[in-house]
Amino acid sequence: MTGTNASRNRALRRRRGRRRGGFTLAEILISMGVLVFGMGMIAGAFQAGIKSHKTTVEEFLRSMIAENAIAVIKARVDPNSLGDTPIMLDDTVLGPLDKKFPIGPDSSLGFLLYGCRGQNARSECEFIVFPYRLGGGNVNMSFGTVSNVAIVEEGDVCRVDPDTSSLGWGKKADTVLPIGSVIIERNPTTNQLSVAIVAASPEPTRSSVWLDRKINAGRRDLPVVTITGGVVGVEPLQVIQPPYHARTSLWAGE
């Protein structure tokens, strides 16, 4: 009996000794988990780099598109084609190729333009340029307007209540959106995508107000871009934020 106990104790000691010399599967899996967590953190740092790169490129594109856009506007837009009420400048004011960079049908970079006459001088006009990048696929755009948009709050962040029932979408609920935000909706009947851009006044205290305050208290129009085509899963239109606000004098009428 004593001999049996002694041999059992020796076996236990051997087993304990062996356990002290190595790791169990559970220990290794835990350490691997810690390692995976660390690797994940390192990989996550690249995300910040990618985001930073995206911001830099977009800032460059925004600046390049906006500066070219203002030059094209100065060369082409007749201030007499603009009214006191800001309007989305369609293809009758600026040709479709004029709004793409590099100018050409295949370019995915371009701008949408909202403009009106200024209050101070005859030839002075104001514009908001929305530089954009189109998503993949063949995309065609046309312009329209959503009427009776209730602007609940003005300023850099405005609360809009667009009545899109005229486009067959039904009425949207109140939404808080910053200037330049894009509302993308799909028409269930025609399957076309429509894009509305929030373009409330960056300077609500001025007398000439974007999206005309004069229509009636707080009710304005939202420009709508109807997009056909594109690739499933790719955002059809990405407005490069923030939009570019310019006040400039034009050639015609001078």
């Binding site: 390049m64 500066e67 070219n68 100065k74 590099p102």
Partner: peptide, 8 residues
Amino acid sequence: MDYEVIAN
């Protein structure tokens, strides 16, 4: 890469 500068 192609670039375009338009200036008045």
